[in-house]
Simulated assay, not measured.
Amino acid sequence: MGPTSVDRHDFPATGLRVAVPVSQEHPSHYAVRDLVSELISQGAVGKPITTPPLISRAIAKAQVSLPRRWRRRQEPVIVPMMGARFDQLYAAGLKGDVVPYCWDVWEPSWPLWVRRLRPLRPPAVFVTAQQSARFLGDALPQSQVIHLPEATRMARHDSGTCLAARTVGVLELGRRHPVWHEAVTEPLRRRSPLPHLYEAGPGRLVYPDEHALRRGLSQAMVSVCFPSSLTHPQRSGNVETMTQRYLESMASGCLVLGQAPPELVSLMGFNPVIEIDWRDPVQQVLDILASPSRWQPAVDRALSRLQEVGDWSVRVRAALERIRIIGLL
Rank of each mutant, 00 (worst) to 15 (best):
V18C: 02
V18Q: 00
V18D: 01
V20F: 10
V22F: 04
S23R: 15
Q24L: 13
Q24M: 12
Q24H: 13
E25C: 11
E25M: 13
E25F: 10
H26R: 15
P27I: 07
P27H: 06
H29D: 04
Y30P: 02
A31S: 09
V32M: 09
V36G: 04
S37D: 03
E38M: 15
L39T: 10
L39V: 11
L39Y: 11
I40S: 01
G43M: 09
A44N: 02
A44L: 00
V45P: 03
V45S: 08
V45G: 06
G46L: 07
P48Y: 14
P48R: 15
P48E: 03
I49K: 14
I49M: 08
I49W: 11
I49N: 06
T51R: 13
P52S: 13
L54T: 14
L54H: 14
I55L: 12
R57K: 14
R57Y: 07
A58I: 14
A58F: 13
A58N: 05
A60L: 11
A60V: 13
K61G: 07
K61H: 12
K61D: 03
K61P: 03
Q63V: 02
S65P: 05
L66C: 03
L66G: 01
P67N: 02
R69Y: 08
R69N: 07
R69H: 08
W70T: 10
W70N: 08
R71T: 03
R72G: 01
R72D: 00
R73N: 06
Q74L: 10
P76T: 01
V79I: 14
V79C: 10
M82Y: 13
M82T: 11
G83H: 09
A84K: 15
D87L: 11
D87S: 13
Q88Y: 10
Q88T: 12
Q88K: 15
L89K: 00
Y90M: 11
A91S: 12
A91H: 12
A92S: 13
G93R: 07
G93W: 07
G93P: 07
G93K: 11
L94I: 12
K95D: 03
K95A: 08
D97N: 02
D97F: 00
D97I: 02
D97R: 02
V98W: 06
V98N: 06
P100I: 14
P100V: 12
